[in-house]
Design a protein around this nucleic acid. Structure first.
Lengths: 199, 199, 199, 199
DNA sequence: AAGTAAACGAGACGGTACGTCCTGTCTTCGC
DNA sequence: GCGAAGACAGGACGTACCGTCTCGTTTACTT
């Protein structure tokens, strides 16, 4: 695979080691305690190599987020026939992820990074958008199946759900079964077309 | 104001100058670019004075947040008779606040701080809780007035609304009238007791 | 010992540790392999403390030289009655110093530093001047005693002697007894008033 | 010009460009601020090509010195009949060289390099030796002509003269006509066989 | 003419050191 | 005795070079 450019080709291996080290540091230390020195050492790489790939701490983190190393609120949403069940499964999957060892730490670090830096925010939004799109798709199937009111604003609903969950993680509150159940009740109101509901 | 102790009393003025300088730095630089050195200089205060009041960057920011210097999603919620109108007014007030010059920057800095530090997260939750409580109160008045279903989980709804809004700010997306309108439609479903709504 | 200035007083101890560490590094590594990092670590001092005292590697070395940590071609010149014997003793003392473990290394490092940096050169000249002055004083006593021609240009002679010796050290050549003896014969020529000479 | 070996022949042009770039850097920056990177770039050459010719900064400088790019204290010594006049001419030529723009800078850089590195010192000594040999030759002619005492130690005298001059350059002092005149008076004492001298 | 191999320019690699900034602590003076 | 001023040890920053190691290309010698 010729590059056409002179000089040694950039090391794919170093690049991956950098991203992995960054993820580990993010989970262990959070965003503002990240140290490029430490990342480079952990990755077995010169500091200059880190800077050759990414000009700043924030763009490095942005890349990690974009590549799903950090915030991946599970894109896979089931399609079992019941929208409510599928959304419930997704909520529980997210809650489970946020309870895993580094899970919440990574989400918090990523959110902090997004809150502090415009570029990171853009990547963060890109990634959450994917989840929201998957949610929207499932919600619209539900609308088509008559399981949700026709005028449900799916995109906004998806955004609100993601926001609510991330907020819980940032505020360091547990995403309890009760919370999930309440959210479901809000989305699928009594008046909705899914009358068998109970908390 | 005699303290009964010998020696010079701690300067209230210094203390305020510190908090104000911190707020300004937070708005201008964000959380991880905060510098105690700069804060002390800007406040015209010795570094030790800062540390005398607050043992760390995070607890200083925690205090700023707690005292409403940073994230204040307007606690005052109207009671005009229509829950929907009152919630709409609150949403719009928040949106307006997030569009003001330092408004979004402060919210983002505070959120980043909360995401990175447990103590800050606790204060952050304390502050958002006040807003949520006010929302809950208004929602329950609405329920009592029959403007919302009896089984509406007010606390969770309040949390989700706050989360959704903060997420928009972090992701650097505008809180559009459409978004607000959609949120209202989600809360006050067509089948709800407020049928005259339209986007 | 009041300084009149606020703030912590500069640590005399740190300062001495820095100079000693510098001297050790100079002897061990030479001038251009000096590392401020290493000096600071060896002195048990923060790098900033080094820079607070000296703005650059060269001014640090300049100070070391000036304080006699580096090039001290023995100022003490005897006054036994015979100029020739006294100068011979001094030459031999210098030769001995240049043969001691770190002796030659320090002289070379200091000379390299002087050759590369104007400020160091000034201090270097200051120090060698002291030796030259002592030599001149002794030579003039000798002239007065009729042991040297009246018109001997003592200052230039002193400078030439110092230069010749330093050159030998830089060129990494031994200062042999023969060389010393030859120098003496040049200064105290056969025609001079010290007729008992033999190589 | 067949080499008998396969592969591209080493580029004479690159080699010269390297030496010239090194000399320019030495004159402009001194020895310890030399940068192989900069030399390679200035010479329009890959860094590896520099290292192919010379394994280190010091051996590169050693070569420059040896090839007379750096320290050339003028070998050509006249033979007019008067030793004193010829030595005087040489001293003045050296003084003139040390006053030329890059002249003193190159001498200082070379001396610094010699003081810091054994290999460079060896080449430096080789080059100064040539000058000393030429001086010795002229001095011995003078001795034979009866213009200097028979027992004059020519080699040591030559070494001392070179050392005295280089020391002046390193110490950044001008080689004044007075200094030259004094040196001559020392070598050719009043009692010597050239009595018509006066300052 | 095709093949082999060394040297070329370019430039990325793992590292070390730079000089600056900041942290949290300690110390000295002035109010 | 508090508070500003500021020095302290320590650690991270982003940059500059070190000497090495590929790249793709050019040039010479060998088949």
């Amino acid at each position: 695979m010729a590059t056409g450019r002179p000089g040694r080709t950039r090391s794919e291996k170093s690049w991956q080691a950098i991203l992995e080290a960054t993820r580990d540091e993010l989970a262990a230390q959070g965003y503002d305690r990240l140290s490029i020195d430490r990342i480079a050492t952990a990755a077995g790489v010169g500091k200059q190599t880190v800077y050759r790939w990414y000009p700043s701490k924030s763009s490095l983190v942005a890349e990690c987020i974009l590549r799903g190393y950090v915030v991946t609120p599970g894109i896979d949403i089931l399609e079992t026939g019941s929208v409510r069940d599928d959304i419930a499964a997704w909520l529980e999957a997210f809650a489970a992820g946020s309870r895993s060892p580094g899970g919440a730490a990574l989400i918090r670090a990523g959110t902090a990074a997004a809150a502090e830096d415009e570029e990171v925010a853009a990547r963060y939004a890109e990634v959450t958008k994917k989840t929201e799109d998957a949610l929207v798709e499932r919600l619209e199937t539900g609308i088509a199946a008559g399981q949700l009111p026709a005028e449900t604003p799916a995109a906004t609903l998806a955004e609100a759900l993601v926001g609510a969950l991330l907020f819980k993680v940032v505020a360091r509150q547990e995403i309890s079964p009760q919370f999930i159940s309440d959210l479901l009740n809000l989305v699928f109101t009594k008046e909705s077309l899914h009358p068998e509901e109970s908390v």
